[in-house]
Measured scan of single mutants.
Amino acid sequence: MSIQHFRVALIPFFAAFCLPVFAHPETLVKVKDAEDQLGARVGYIELDLNSGKILESFRPEERFPMMSTFKVLLCGAVLSRVDAGQEQLGRRIHYSQNDLVKYSPVTEKHLTDGMTVRELCSAAITMSDNTAANLLLTTIGGPKELTAFLHNMGDHVTRLDRWEPELNEAIPNDERDTTMPAAMATTLRKLLTGELLTLASRQQLIDWMEADKVAGPLLRSALPAGWFIADKSGASERGSRGIIAALGPDGKPSRIVVIYTTGSQATMDERNRQIAEIGASLIKHW
């Protein structure tokens, strides 16, 4: 058993032996400061991975655009179909130039040979490839079927209504393609630790998130040596930015963190910096 498999397999085991986890309101002070700095709403939640207890939250039940963070949920739905014998990670999917949409750094290189379902999930999560996400959405029946999958998990909040890139429109008060921090954190925890997916599929999902290559300026920039993080970021119109993550010290995840912001006029660099500073406060007061 690899170190990674050891880590995921023991998450339920550690729940019975973990020390009490204490919240630190200092992080919420930073979240509120980020709102002031960005001139935008910020949603935040910090969840204990083992118990599911909410440690801190700010606007946990307000809607925010999901942006590309939905791609983790999408690959969770794909893995659920794999577990049920309805899909194979090794199945190759062929597509054409007409299928390519904006920001497809991986799929645009494989027009001649296509990509496997496994490769598409990797591209969608680690590189946020939009065509990969659309191709995967097609395999499960489209955005409405992803919403149905989430409903069956008990998440009646999170919804996907459109495809890439239209889902990134982020119109104020538009509930399409949105979630709430509390709903996203709970759903992510179920995917990573619950019985919905097999152990192998849970491991695969967290491996893809751990290999994320496009979230460096966010929480990863504040991470001390030896800490673990598996994450997925997102960005969209109207100053929207977000990240969902499982992270913790000693090389294993122990908390879920979800951060969303929307409605800012700030630059992408400034949005990144504010999220990184929230992460730094979280780690300092861990």
Rank of each mutant, 00 (worst) to 15 (best):
E169Q: 13
L135R: 02
R238C: 13
E237W: 07
D129V: 00
S80F: 12
E166V: 08
I140N: 00
A245L: 01
T158Q: 11
P172V: 10
P65H: 07
T107V: 06
I93E: 02
D177G: 01
E108A: 11
D113V: 07
S96C: 12
W208L: 04
I243C: 05
T187N: 09
R189T: 08
D48G: 05
S122G: 09
A40N: 09
K213H: 08
G90S: 13
P165S: 05
G90F: 11
P105T: 06
M153I: 13
D269H: 12
V42G: 01
R271Q: 13
M115T: 02
F13S: 10
T198Y: 06
E119R: 03
E277S: 10
L89Q: 03
T187D: 12
L218H: 02
W163V: 08
A40C: 12
E87D: 10
L197P: 01
T178R: 01
L89A: 05
F22V: 07
A133P: 00
Q265N: 15
R41D: 05
T267I: 06
L10H: 06
P253R: 04
R59L: 01
L137E: 01
T262Y: 10
R91M: 04
I171T: 14
A266C: 12
A225P: 15
A124S: 09
D269I: 09
G226T: 07
T126V: 08
M268P: 08
E277K: 08
R159S: 06
A276S: 10
R91W: 02
L55T: 04
G234A: 06
P253Q: 04
N98K: 15
P181C: 04
G248R: 00
V42S: 01
R118T: 14
P217R: 08
L49I: 15
M268L: 13
L218F: 02
H94Y: 14
K213Y: 07
T158G: 02
L73T: 06
H24D: 08
P165E: 04
K213V: 09
R271G: 09
T187L: 06
G239K: 02
T158L: 00
G226A: 05
L19H: 15
S80D: 08
L218P: 03
S254P: 02
P224A: 02
N173S: 12
V101L: 07
A230G: 07
T147D: 06
R92Y: 09
L10C: 10
Y44H: 01
K252V: 14
P249L: 02
V82G: 03
E166A: 11
Q86R: 14
L73P: 11
S96N: 14
D48E: 12
M66W: 00
N168F: 03
W208M: 03
E195K: 11
P65F: 02
R176C: 08
S264D: 05
I125A: 00
T126P: 00
P25L: 08
E145T: 10
D83S: 02
I206N: 07
P65W: 01
H94A: 11
V157A: 12
S128G: 03
G43L: 00
R118N: 14
K213A: 14
L219R: 01
G242S: 06
T187M: 05
L74I: 04
N50I: 14
F228K: 03
R255V: 13
T267S: 14
L219A: 01
L19R: 06
N168S: 08
L79C: 02
E237G: 10
R202G: 06
G85S: 08
T178F: 01
T262R: 07
Q204H: 10
G251A: 09
K252G: 08
Y44S: 00
Q265P: 14
I283D: 00
Y44P: 00
K32N: 07
M66A: 03
G239W: 02
G216D: 11
A225C: 11
T178E: 01
K109Q: 15
D231Y: 03
S236Q: 03
L55H: 05
C121S: 04
P165R: 03
S254N: 08
N134I: 01
E175L: 12
P20T: 07
C121G: 03
D174I: 02
P181R: 00
Y103F: 07
A280T: 10
D83L: 00
R59T: 07
G239D: 04
V82C: 13
A148S: 14
S57C: 09
R241G: 07
I243P: 00
I93V: 13
D269G: 10
D207G: 14
S80I: 08
P65S: 05
L167S: 05
P217K: 10
A9T: 14
S264G: 15
D113T: 11
S240I: 08
W227S: 00
M268K: 05
D207R: 14
F149C: 05
E145R: 11
T186M: 15
